[in-house]
């Protein structure tokens, strides 16, 4: 394998890993804090991509504005979903909220198909240059996605250290004791939904100049997000980030050798990992339903 090929595969893996990281960290945040298995998580990614398309390509706004618009729109939608669906089903337990999100995700998915059809939304590449470094050429669009994702992760790291961010961690660890500290769980929950969904929206916004948006992209990434969360460990943000890049890179290299068997490689590795470490790399085992 030449250096050029190796680096290209590595960048592919890092880029898709960064996207997995954003979606998975949003998912694991909601799972950890609300103990809601949000089946609609992928749809926020899809909607984020389409929102970016609408703002950047249809309205003609600068791409950065489109990213912020997608972020804000998905945060708002997350809050809306919390107050209209999650809040009412939360008290009945794990499976009720899960089913409610399945229903919501299906409705969003089908509505998107009705509205956008089977076609794709394409946002023109923001940077369309190839970086040549000592005979190795790399697509700068992918590096931009990676950079953008790293910025978002940095912001997330900062946010998790603010008072409300720490409260989210406290709620995830022990909801009752958090309440005993005067933390308003309801407030923490809607903020968590906003952050978790905004992460997906940003992921969709970042990815759309490189990969075109399609109405089924949400379902596809959701499966990957679950794999990432299983590998990283539920409730562990650091685990999710680590696992996302691992999965992205393994997937990328696996394809070079075994093509369409790459998912099989991933699943086999996940199975082995879970056998030896049921809690994933850095986390706890899945929350017991009904807790």
């Amino acid at each position: 394998m030449t250096l050029q090929l190796f680096l290209q595969i590595l960048v592919n893996g890092l880029m898709i890993g960064a996207i997995y990281a954003l979606v998975a960290s949003g998912f694991t945040l909601i799972l950890g804090v609300l103990q809601v298995f949000n089946f609609a998580q992928g749809q926020f990614y899809m909607l984020g991509a389409f929102a970016t398309y609408a703002v950047a390509s249809v309205l003609g706004a600068p791409y950065v504005v489109a990213i912020l618009a997608a972020l804000a729109a998905m945060a708002l939608l997350g809050i809306l979903v919390y107050f209209s669906i999650i809040k009412w089903t939360l008290r009945y337990g794990f499976f009720h909220t899960m089913l409610a999100t399945v229903a919501f995700g299906t409705i969003v998915g089908q509505a998107a198909v009705l509205k956008f059809g089977y076609s794709t939304a394409v946002v023109a590449a923001v940077v369309d240059k190839t970086l040549a470094l000592g005979g190795v050429s790399l697509n700068s669009g992918k590096l931009l996605v990676l950079a953008g994702a790293l910025v978002v992760m940095g912001l997330l790291y900062w946010f998790m250290r603010t008072k409300i961010g720490v409260a989210m961690q406290a709620c995830a660890e022990n909801r009752e004791v958090a309440c005993l500290q005067g933390i308003n769980a309801g407030k923490v929950f809607w903020v968590t939904m906003a952050v978790g969904c905004a992460l997906c929206g940003v992921a969709g916004a970042l990815v759309v100049p490189v990969l075109s948006a399609s109405t089924n992209m949400g379902q596809l990434i959701f499966l990957k997000a679950i794999i990432v969360v299983l590998v990283g460990g539920t409730g562990s943000m650091a685990g999710a980030l680590l696992a996302a890049f691992l999965v992205g890179i393994v997937e990328s290299f696996a394809f070079q050798y075994v093509e369409s068997f790459a998912p099989l490689v991933i699943f086999a590795l996940v199975a082995i990992l879970i056998y030896f470490r049921p809690g994933g790399l850095l986390g706890k085992p899945l929350p017991i339903p009904g807790q």
Partner: peptide
């Protein structure tokens, strides 16, 4: 021929393999 899984969204690995 190169076969890829039907639910592929990111074609970068496929393209890299094609180019190689």
């Amino acid at each position: 021929p190169i076969f890829f899984s039907a639910d592929t969204a990111d074609f970068s690995p496929i393209a890299t393999k094609i180019a190689s």
